[in-house]
């Protein structure tokens, strides 16, 4: 990164020397940078610098007796042997494995149905399914928290009327499903719109040709539509993966009303937040943030690499 900023003036200077006659391309060089510069500045200050600073901070440890001392990679050794952090990573990994396929299937199914229908009702449904995207995650979690609650929600009234045992979604056994439901509700509509938009870009002549070849609606959906929107599906998967691994808002909001089902180390981000703001342990919190960033980056890079290879394999 510093590499880039340091080298830039040198390169510009040398081009100036080499290409004095071609003024246009020289100007184009500088003007291109002028357009990019404001964003580049923000990028350096609020992405590169915090990453570097987090890494720097993570190399130190704060002890009561010793003060802040350089400790090398000790914080990382501690993080990757810290059951609280590992449990959190395990939770978000398991959560992604359940949530993402469910969410993608739902949004794909809705997008396919909406693409096939052109009624007013379908247009209304498209809007309603998308609506939760406009609702802050804090408010979405609160609303579901109310619905889940035995005091405010309809669940205790329903189980009473049915005469069955009380169903408590926020109990430790059910909290996983309760959170899957909230996140699906919040994001499925957004993913649906992305897939729907991709489907709308497909030339209907393709479907017509398939129909003439005797394909039925299911075959057209699975063999033609789904492969054609596969790049949209990859984008969604990446978004969902990045979002889920940094899970924070929903469990943080449900924590006060979940009666102990959600501990402060429930997800890696919550754990880092607690270390930073409850224990003022910014060195360890930085190590946790940095470690989480690396885990997410590697997970996404592996996924993209794999999906790229697979798709290349298809086309060959």
């Amino acid at each position: 990164m510093t590499h880039m900023t340091l080298e830039r003036p040198a390169v510009v200077a040398s081009t100036r020397g080499a290409r004095t006659p071609r003024r246009r391309s020289l100007r184009s060089e500088q003007i291109g940078w002028l357009f990019v510069a404001p964003f580049a500045l923000i990028f350096l200050i609020f992405l590169v610098a915090p990453l570097c600073y987090a890494f720097y901070l993570s190399l130190f440890s704060k002890g009561l007796a010793t003060g802040t001392v350089f400790s090398g990679l000790d914080n990382y050794v501690k993080a990757f042997t810290d059951p609280a952090f590992l449990n959190g990573v395990g939770f978000v990994a398991g959560f992604s494995l359940v949530l993402i396929p469910l969410q993608m299937l739902l949004s794909l199914a809705v997008a396919l149905v909406l693409d096939a229908l052109t009624t007013r009702f379908a247009r209304f449904a498209r809007l309603m399914v998308f609506l939760p995207y406009a609702i802050p995650a804090v408010i979405g979690s609160l609303m579901w928290g109310f619905l889940y609650s035995p005091t405010f929600g309809p669940l205790s009234q329903i189980t009473e009327a049915l005469g069955t045992a009380q169903f408590l979604p926020l109990s430790p056994d059910n909290i996983f499903g309760a959170l899957v439901n909230i996140v699906t509700w919040q994001w499925a509509g957004y993913y649906m719109i992305i897939i729907y938009a991709a489907l709308q870009g497909v030339d209907p002549a393709l479907y017509e040709a398939a129909r003439l070849d005797g394909a039925n609606a299911w075959q057209i959906a699975w063999r033609i539509k789904v492969p054609l929107v596969s790049s949209a599906l990859v984008v969604i998967l990446v978004f969902a993966l990045i979002g889920t691994l940094q899970f924070f808002t929903e469990p943080q909001i449900l924590r006060p009303i979940a009666n102990g089902s959600i501990q402060p180390d429930f997800t890696p981000n919550m754990y880092a937040y607690t270390q930073a703001f409850s224990y003022a342990n910014f060195n360890y919190a930085s190590a946790l943030s940095f470690a989480l960033g690396i885990v997410v980056f590697i997970a996404v890079a592996i996924f993209l690499f794999a999906s790229n290879r697979k798709r290349k394999g298809f086309s060959q």
Partner: peptide, 21 residues
């Protein structure tokens, strides 16, 4: 390339270091 790579950085991981900064 840097820009595309940065899309994969979880932005919440930057919150605590940015706070300290």
């Amino acid at each position: 390339a840097l820009l595309l790579g940065s899309v994969m950085v979880p932005l919440t991981a930057l919150v605590i270091p940015t706070f300290v900064m």
